[in-house]
């Protein structure tokens, strides 16, 4: 029971990170119908940005207040990662709208390879590890053979995720930008006829997705404290799995899918084998797509001839 509780805590923490990345996949797929394969690498770029921004703040500017650093890094990473995503959309995808279906996907794969190798070249092949922060731990249960712990880090991760998701939900539901975004998702041609700048809306979708991925990147850096230029691929595929599991195109689905994938992964590692935890995630992806292609909350894909 204690192990179960501990894994539940760990799973929710990991799941919120996946959920944040998954939103980027699901929004882009909803609006232009492509798998933004480079999104995982945008996440990786954001962890590097967060790491360097933190080091720059503490070493060069000499900032000492930890909460201030955390918030500054979070905002800085969100802004700078958005620039990357904006650039990627402009250079790699915009011209390919209306091209045949596989062209943007192949371009995205190329972009993904480019980004991970760019960071490899710029930052070197070694793992970068950060000093652990927010190390306080709360004992949830005591006595017995196994102490269940809840670290401040985990609370922070879940709280930041919840806060940002709430803000994001307001953005999509209440603002004119969100309305335009939803309109383009339903029917971009009709939206264009009604005077919505579709290109700008799509750019903003990429930017918002990247900003949320950057939050995930900062939290990932905080949680694991180590990053490598090849670390975008696996979290990216898992977040995509989460988006598919929740029903691609559905925002609550992406978050729920992320939580589920995080829970499945941690429970699989705890009860079966941590060597095969990626196999579990990948198998879920395959099984979902084969047997339940519209996921938990997705709309069924109707093809008109």
């Amino acid at each position: 029971m204690e192990i179960f509780l501990q894994q539940l805590i760990n799973g929710v923490t990991l799941g919120s990170i996946y959920g944040l990345i998954a939103i980027g996949y699901t929004m882009v797929f909803g609006i232009i119908g492509m798998v933004n394969f480079a999104h995982g690498d945008v996440f990786m770029v954001s962890t590097f940005i967060a790491l360097i921004a933190f080091l720059a703040l503490t070493q060069i500017l000499g900032a000492t207040s930890l909460p201030f650093c955390f918030i500054a890094v979070l905002i800085g990473a969100m802004v700078l990662t958005s620039l990357w995503s904006y650039m990627i959309e402009r250079l790699a995808y915009r011209r390919l709208r209306g091209s045949f279906r596989l062209a943007p996907l192949i371009s995205a794969i190329g972009m993904s390879i480019f980004l991970s190798n760019l960071v490899y070249v710029l930052q070197g092949p070694r793992n970068k590890s950060m000093p652990p922060l927010f190390n306080d731990v709360i004992q949830v249960t005591q006595g017995g053979g196994y102490d269940v712990t809840l670290s401040v880090k985990q609370i922070l991760i879940v709280a930041v995720t919840a806060l940002l998701l709430a803000g994001f939900w307001l953005l999509v539901q209440k603002t004119s930008l969100g309305r335009a975004q939803r309109a383009c998702e339903q029917d971009s041609r009709m939206a264009a006829l009604l005077g919505i700048d579709v290109d700008r809306t799509i750019s903003l979708t990429f930017v918002i997705g990247a900003a949320l991925a950057a939050v995930a990147g900062v939290l990932y850096m905080l949680y694991y404290g180590v990053v490598n230029s090849s670390d975008g691929f696996i979290p990216g595929v898992k977040a995509f799995t989460a988006a598919v599991l929740g029903g691609i195109g559905s925002l609550p689905g992406a978050v729920l899918g992320g939580l589920l994938i995080g829970l499945i992964e941690t429970f699989w590692s705890a009860y079966f084998s941590s060597d095969y935890k990626d196999v579990a995630a990948f198998s879920i992806l395959a099984v979902t797509l084969i047997f339940m292609p519209s996921g938990l909350f997705g709309r069924p894909d109707v093809e008109k001839v």
């Binding site: 250079l91 790699a92 371009s107 190329g110 972009m111 980004l115």
Partner: peptide, 10 residues
């Protein structure tokens, strides 16, 4: 290679 894939597709 990655860059070439992007350029080629565009």
């Amino acid at each position: 290679v990655g860059f070439a894939m992007v350029v080629m597709m565009n």
